[in-house]
Amino acid sequence: MDLQIALFLLADGLTNGAVYALVALSLVLIFTTTRVVNIAQGEYVTFGALTLASFVEGSIAPVVWVVAAGGFVSLVLDVRQAIINRRSAMRPIAQYALLGLLLAALTLAAWQTQSLALQMLAALALVSALGPIVYRLTVEPKPDSSIVVLVIIGVGVSMIMHPLALLLWGPDPRAVPAISDGRLPVGPMDIAYQSLFIMALSIAAAVALFAFFRFTLLGKALRAASVNREGAQYCGIPVVRAGRLSFFLAAALSAISGLMLAPLVSAHYEMGFIVGLKGFVGAAMGGLVNYPLSVIGVVIVGVLESFASFLSSSYRDAVVFALVIPIMLWRNRYAAEDLDEH
C-alpha cells in the first residue's frame, strides 16, 4: 500500500464516516430525548434513498401510501385521546389535514417536476413524516417502558420496515443522480463533490445539534424530558411533542444520509440496516449521548472500514463490528464512577 492508495482510502473512509455520522447523530438525538435505542434508524436511510429514486424515475413514491395509512391511524388514535381527555377533536384533525395537504402537494410537485432539488425535498419530507408516525404508534402508547423494552420495540419496527421496503420497491437496485458529478483535485488525487457535500452536512448537523442541546433552553428541556418524564411534564415541557419532534428530526437526518449515499452505492432495500448498525458502533463511542464523540466514533468506523475492505473485502464488516469491543472497553474506563449502578 503506497501513500496514494492510503490517501484514497482515507478520503473514502471519511465519506463513509460522514454518511454514518448523520445516522449516529439521529441515534444520539433520539436516545437523549426519548431513551429509545432505535435499532430501526437505518431503515430511514433506505426509505430516503428509494423514495428519491422513485421520484427521479418519474413515478409516485409508494411510501406515500404508507405515510397516508400511518398518518390516518395516528389521527384516529389522537382523536380518540382528545375525546377521552375531553378536548376538542378538531385540533388534531386540522393539524393532520394541514400536514397531509402539504405532503400531498409536495409529492405531486415532485412527481411532475424534473428538479432534483424539489424531488429531494419531497422525499425528505415524506420519510421524515414516518418518524413521528412510528413514535406515535410504538412508543407513545406506553411511554414509561424500560430501555430494554424500547430496544425490542425498535427491533419490531425494523422487522416491519425492512420487508416493507422490499414490498414497496422490489429487490432491484436503482440509480440515483448525484447533486454534482464534479471532482475536486486535492494534491495527487481528487475528491467527488458529493463526498464533500456529505461531510459538510454532517459537520454542520453535529455542530448544530451539539450547540442546540448544550446552550439553548429548549434543548435542555428536551434532554430533561428523557431523564424524568413526569418532572419535565410538571415543568410544562410537552414531553409527547418533544418525542415526536425528535423522531421527526432523526428521521430527517437519516433520510438525508440516504439521499446523499444513494448516488454513491445505488439505492436498494437492504442498504440502510447495516448503515444504521455502523452508526450505532460509532455512537457507542459517546455512550449514545455525546455528539462530538459520536462523530469521532463514526470517522474511526468509516476509515477502518475503508482500510479493511482494501485488505480483505469479505471480512470488512466483521472488523468494523468487532470494533465495538475496544470501544466498550474504552467506555468502561470512563464510566468508572458509574460501576455500581444499573
Binding site: 436516545f31 435505542v37 435499532i39 424500560s146 430501555i147 430494554v148 430496544v151 447495516i274 448498525l277 450505532f280 458502533v281 457507542a284 455512550g287 449514545l288 464488516d317 466483521a318 472488523v319 468494523v320 463490528f321 468487532a322 470494533l323 465495538v324 469491543i325 466498550m328 467506555r331 468502561n332 464510566a335 458509574d338 444499573h342
Partner: peptide
C-alpha cells in the same frame, strides 16, 4: 455500563 450497552454489543458482535 448502562443498560443499552449489552444489546448494542451483542448486536454488533452478532453481525461480526
Amino acid at each position: 455500563l448502562k443498560g443499552h450497552s449489552l444489546p448494542l454489543a451483542t448486536l454488533a458482535w452478532g453481525v461480526a
